[in-house]
Structures are given as structure tokens and as C-alpha cells.
Write a protein that binds this DNA or RNA. Structure first.
Lengths: 202, 202
DNA sequence: TCAATTCGAAACGATAACGTATCGTAATTC
DNA sequence: GAATTACGATACGTTATCGTTTCGAATTGA
């Protein structure tokens, strides 16, 4: 239950329970309340931890926030390769839409992006840790689709990535779910698959 | 330069210069700084106006913010009908991307949507004033496209709207411009037009 | 001219978070 | 057992900002 320091410290070891409580509280607080309401005191309160316990670990608010953000990496869930390319793509978009069944990442992402102009280094960190790996995974799926001949080889990849991610983020921001009348991921993939133009007008 | 009240008041009339200065400052402040930093004091400072001048007009912060938001309607620029349907669509998306060459609306929209859970009535107002008219305009263009046979008549309209608006908002949130290597509106329309699947695999 | 009203500026008290320190308790090493 | 360090809780003085009120000057109708 306690962290073991490599160099055997003398006194009471720091609680790793407090460590993770602080990290979790920081991420949830940021997602729930946003940047402006993110304060040491609020994190301590939410984590059930004394302020001194936080100040013993971090010098100030920015350090705490930056450290918490780095807990965002790790799990980019692997998509089990399905037989059908379009099925795989749909599943991938569903994952992006739900952000790994855990909306914490996506709520943080949206907050950081919408406030990015004010905190560029935070924006860069989230871009690197959350957005980039998912875009890479998406590109890999697209490349595989081209390989197996399911995807046109002449499509603009940048445009395609924007066409796949954009609608997911947009629908999430609107707070619309497929159950609530919004477009389903399947129908979006379907439109994208066949295109908007009639076959006769290509 | 001064507002003429219907009932001729006795004292010094309220300055309509201050009126519009307050409105403008409120919108810009909200776009620049976000909800949490939106305060009477900051609006007064930015407008070059005494705080009492604002309190004489609005009871509190929420009233001021709501009034300022209602200045957002009015101009949904009309798209001159071009000959080519896809050209019209591209121009429409460019307009959405730049939000009428004035990023104020789009910055406000993104802030409101990302913070919408906390302020549902504000979200409803922006949805009504900014998003709904633009979606209506887009649907009209799509309907016309079907009429003239440029657009498949069996496409899912909801999905198509999400596919058109989503990428624009997403690229704007990322802060990417076509000049900076991001996908151009033309290439997005092009991918959407022809679809992702090879002709042989439809 | 006089009373009424608004103006921008500034003073006022309240609130909140900051960073630090202290308290008694708990955990660990020597 | 003694020394040391961390724990949660809480108190402290400082700073910043908020909403509200007050002030003299300015602008109007009567």
C-alpha cells in the first residue's frame, strides 16, 4: 500500500494511495469544472487529502495539472481486427465517439482544445497524448483498407481523417446520441462509403 | 448619438454609445476569456465604461451575458447560388469554417458547447441563434442538390449534416488552417462527393 | 436656473484561493 | 524506544477580484 523508495528513506513513506487519489481527483476536477476552477484546494478537497500532501509533491498548480495530464496516455484500446473493413471502421469511430467508454478523456480534450489559445503547452500535451495516438490508429486502419482493396487508393488521407473524427466530436459536443435522434455511426460510415454523388454523376 | 426614449425622460439620456460598447465588449470578452472570467468588472474595463453604467442596465452577470448573446443572430450570410452544386457546398463550408469571416461567433459557440453542461440555457440560446440557422441553410442547399440531381436522393440527411459540419469544427478546434497543412475544404468535399469505396466494391 | 438622470472613476466590504505553517496522529528506520 | 517523515485538518496573512455603493462632473427637460 505504500511506495517503496529505491533509497530507503527514514521516516514514514509517502502514501501511494494519496498519489493516485490526487491524480484521479485532478483529472476529474478538470473535466468537471474546467481550467479556471482548477485549484489546489479543490483538488485536495475532492481527493480527501490535506493541502500539505499536495504541496509536498508539486510546487504549484501548473505542475500538478501537467502531471495529472500525463496519466492520460497508456490505454489506446486495440481494435480487434474484424473481417469486414467497414465494420472495423465503424467500431473504431464508436470508440472515438465514446472515447474508450470513458468520457473523461474526451471531456478533458474538449476543454483543453476550446481553451487552447490560453494554454498552448497544455494543448500540445493533450494533442500528443490523446489525439495523436488515435489519429495514428485511424491512419493504420485506413492504410490497411487500401491494402486489401476496400478503400480507394486515391483518397486524400488528411481529409478522410477529418471526415471521420470531426463528426464524432461534433455530435459529442452537441450532446446528441444515436438514441436521441442524432446520426448513428453506422449511417455516417455508410454515407462516407458510398459518397454523396449519384453514380451517374461521378 | 443618444437613445431617444419613447417617454421623454427628464434627466440625461442613456448613452447608446455605452450600450453598444457594452454589448461588443461582452461578446469579445466571452470569446477571449470564457465563462469563468466573464465578470461585470472585466466587461466594464474592456468597454471603457463605469461599472455603474452596466448595473443601471442589467441586474447581474447572467442578464448581461444573455443580452449580449442575443446580438449574435441577424447575419446568416446568404450564399449566392453558383452554377455548380459542389462549388456552392464548398463555399458554404468555407463560410462555416470561418464563421462569416468573423471568428467571434465560432469562438463563442465552441466555448458554450464545451461548457454547455454547466449552463444549459446558454447552450440552448446559442444552439438556437447560431447553429440552427446554419444547419437550416445547409439542409436547404442539400435539398436543392437532390432536386437538381446532383445529390443522391437516398442519403441520410442527419449523417450528411454531421459529415459536413463536423470536420469544419474539428479543424477549427485543432487550430489548423488549410495553409498549415490541414485538409482543405475542397478536398473534404471531394472525398465526400465520391465516397471512400472503390467503384468496384460498392 | 433647477431638478433629474447618467456618466466614468474610485472606494468599500466580501469572498476565494494562494502558499505556508502548525497540530496531533500514523508509519517507518535505526 | 527514539528519531524522522508523511498524514489530514486547519489556521494564518496576503493577494486578487468580485459586486455594490458613492462621488463630482456632465447632460438633458422643465
Amino acid at each position: 500500500m505504500l511506495t517503496q523508495a529505491p533509497t530507503r528513506a527514514k521516516g514514514r513513506p509517502r502514501s501511494c494511495v494519496a498519489d493516485s487519489a490526487i491524480d484521479t481527483a485532478a483529472l476529474e476536477l478538470f473535466a468537471d469544472e474546467g481550467f479556471e476552477r482548477f485549484s489546489i484546494e479543490a483538488v485536495a478537497s475532492r481527493a480527501g487529502v490535506g493541502k500539505a500532501t499536495i504541496y509536498r509533491r508539486f510546487a504549484n498548480r501548473d505542475e500538478l495539472l501537467a502531471h495529472a495530464m500525463q496519466q492520460l496516455d497508456a490505454d489506446v484500446p486495440v481494435i480487434s481486427e474484424l473481417g469486414d473493413f467497414w465494420q472495423t471502421l465503424t467500431k473504431l469511430l464508436d470508440d472515438i465517439r465514446e472515447s474508450s467508454l470513458d468520457s473523461l478523456k474526451s471531456r478533458i480534450m474538449i476543454r483543453v482544445l476550446s481553451e487552447g489559445a490560453r494554454h498552448p503547452q497544455l494543448r500540445a500535451m493533450v494533442t500528443e497524448l490523446v489525439i495523436r495516438p488515435r489519429q495514428a490508429r485511424l491512419r493504420a486502419v485506413l492504410a490497411h483498407g487500401i491494402q486489401v482493396g476496400q478503400l480507394r487508393s486515391d483518397v486524400d488521407i488528411e481529409a478522410t481523417v477529418a471526415l471521420l473524427i470531426g463528426p464524432m466530436v461534433w455530435l459529442k459536443m452537441l450532446g446528441l446520441t444515436p438514441e436521441a435522434g442524432a446520426a448513428s455511426t453506422e449511417s455516417i460510415v455508410q454515407v462516407l462509403r458510398t459518397g454523396l454523388a449519384p453514380a451517374s454523376r461521378l
